[in-house]
Structures are given as structure tokens and as C-alpha cells.
Amino acid sequence: MTRTPVLYVERFSVFQRFIHLLIILSFLTLAVTGMALKFATEPWADWIARVGGGFEVLGALHRFCAVITFFYFFLTMILLYTSWKESDKDLFEFIFDPEGLVPNLTDLKEMIGTFKWFFGGKRPYYGHWTYWEKFDFMAVFWGIAVIGSSGLALWFPEQFSRLFPGYWINIATIIHSDEALLAAGFIFTIHFYNTHLRPEKFPLDPVIFVGSVPLEELKHERPREYDQLVASGELERIVTRRAPAAWLRRLATVFGLFVVTTGSVLIVAIILTMFKYIQHN
């Protein structure tokens, strides 16, 4: 940590940042290895398989990262459980906390407000989580449930078919493959753009790696959260002059850009391939 005249506020704890790092590493690997199989007819997919050492290696990596996915899903549940216990709220209140992760009516209003803002209206009075950030979180939750369960069916088809008809494996294949295309497509375009690549943030918002944001940035981007922190007097308690360490910022930039580039290249290859398929049919 470096002391600066700039005031900082922590946005992500070390635990949260660790979970996100696990997500990045596993998700990127799952996407690369899975898309190589889905688009096996394409030269770029064969290139991935050759670099990786064959489809069996890709399969092993894919399953390993599936385990990491279930692991971080479990860690997230622990995280949610501990935040609930610390919050003095009952379960219902915690889940539907107006400032929590579950979308609510305010989000709908902010979404409409955002479209107005695009056309020159006033910037919405965003809080701790914007609606697109909530969507990212809920989408990963939903995605893990859908891709994870269908993936388990494909991983253990013999056991799965003892419980369900064998042709459900065909259905699981379609669901797994298309939901994964949606997930990878969403993360590598929409999430990358909303969080990192949009001109206000370009080329990278390092907060998920370094943890804290300058107070000024918070005040500008999330005015409702800022006002709430001021009103509750909590801001005094959490504000700090300790900026993220320079090495961490550099590492975050290099790593973040590597990941964003890899994901972008993959999605470009996928989009070009999809265009080719559509042209052929």
C-alpha cells in the first residue's frame, strides 16, 4: 500500500477478489477448451487442440475447471452466508435487501433512466450495484446451475442414464453447449464492454484486482452509495489514504488485459464462424 493524498474506499474484499480470480481462470479455460470441441470443424479449434496436446487434454482441463467452478460456487455461498450473519437481517430481508444483489424495482427504473441518459438525460442515481452488475452476478449463478448440471450429465453419462432416459444426454448436450455459448458470448462482449472496454473505463477497470477505488470515482459513479455512506457516517470509518500497491496495479493491468484479449480473440473467432455457418445454411 502506498500513502497518497487521494482518498480510497474498498469495494472488493480479498476473499471476493480471490473468488473472481478463480472465476476468470476457470471460465477462460472452460470457454477455450469447450469452444474448441463445439467448433471442432474450424482450423482455430484444431489449433487449440494441437497447442493443448489433443482433445483428451482439453477434456481433462475442462473437467478440472468444472471442479474449480463448483468450488467457487461453494465459496460464494459461504461469502453470502457470512454477509447475511453479519448483517443483522433475517434471510428474506437479506436476499431482498434494496442494496443487495437481487434485482428489484429500483433497477428497472434505473435501467429506463440509463436509456434516457444515453440520449442526453440525467445520469441515474446509481447505488452499490448497478442493474447490469446484478445481471452479471445472477447470470453466473443461473449459468452455473444450467451449465453445471448439464455438464455433470455429460461427464457421467452412464450414471446419469440410470436416473434419466439416455436421450436426455442429447438434450443436455444442446443445453450445455448453447448456454455456454451464451455465457462466453456475454462475458467476452457485454461484460468486458460494460466493465472494462467502454470509453469511460478503457482499457481496464482494475478494481476487481486491486480492491479499492478513489473516493472521487465512487462519488461520481455511485452517488447513492456515497450519499448513503455519508448519511450513515460509515464513510469516515472506511475511507483510507492507502492506495493499492503499484506492483499490484501493474500486475492487474497486465493480467487483466491478457484475459480481456484472450476472451475477445475467442469471441471474434466464434462470431466469424457463426457468420460462416449462417451463410452456408
Binding site: 444442446i174 448456454e179 456475454f186 462482449t189 457485454i190 470509453p199
Partner: peptide, 29 residues
């Protein structure tokens, strides 16, 4: 039907967020 339901979900999600993103570009600049 599974395929087309999944494709519908995919197209729907991208249609909405694609539009959202494109409209955001000038504002963001």
C-alpha cells in the same frame, strides 16, 4: 425445441444487451 428455446434465449439476451451497449458508446465517449 430445446435448440430453438436456447437459441431464443441467446438471441434475446444479445439483442437487449447489444442494443444497450451500442447506445452506451456515444454517451460513454
Amino acid at each position: 425445441y430445446t435448440f430453438w428455446a436456447m437459441t431464443g434465449l441467446l438471441v434475446g439476451t444479445f439483442a437487449f444487451f447489444g442494443l444497450h451497449t451500442i447506445l452506451w458508446v456515444p454517451r460513454s465517449i
